[in-house]
Nucleic acid binder design. Sequence first.
DNA 1: TTCCTGGGAA
DNA 2: TTCCCGGGAA
Length: 233
Amino acid sequence: MVARRAGAERGVALRLPARRLRAVYRRLLAAYGPQGWWPADDGPFEVMVGAVLTQNTAWSNVERAIANLRAAGALDAEVLARAPRERLARWIRPAGYFNVKARRLQAFCRFYVAAGGLRALDALPTPALRARLLDVHGIGPETADDMLLYAFGRPVFVVDAYTRRLLVRLGIASGDEPYDAIRLGFERALGPDVPLYNEYHALVVAHAKAHCRVRPRCAGCPLRRLCPSAKSP
DNA sequence: TTCCTGGGAA
DNA sequence: TTCCCGGGAA
């Protein structure tokens, strides 16, 4: 209902070095290859379901949960909106936090149906759509931006804990900047580019798991020469 | 044991 | 600001 928080808070964008961010992207892509996140054969609705289920959860477990939903014929907004909460929780059990996520998934599906479905939502400009998503119980900035980028194809850069950690290691950010400051920082530095944002975020995740972990594995890191935090062998 | 493509409530 | 939610895999 409330349409504040327009998502175009240009004033708070963090200054990020565009050339450096592009160099990082080139090296990550060369090292890990295209990640193929949320392939086109997953419909937008399935992508959005995945975005809720994957909160603080390994993707492999989300796939199990989605497989359960599909097998039950419940990969559908109307079905999920009306399903008993307990049955929904049983379907998504492998994804963890199943009671919390059953509530969130149902809240999202009811919103989705009430809003008129994909067509109606996709007709909204990005700031308005983002605001609508953020009003839904269980959808925070990262989940909203996953949906905007991977389901709606909007040029919104997804920021997560991995992104923050990478920026900190690269000496680009302190890590405690507000979510939108970092998101807008990327968007301003890179310019609107859906395929780039799509791949960039996925590559950051791959990189954070392979090298830029809490305890960094700098040996063989593709960003070694760009990274002031790199440990000498 | 830690970690995983967070967000809400206290 | 802290705490809670949780199964599955490494």
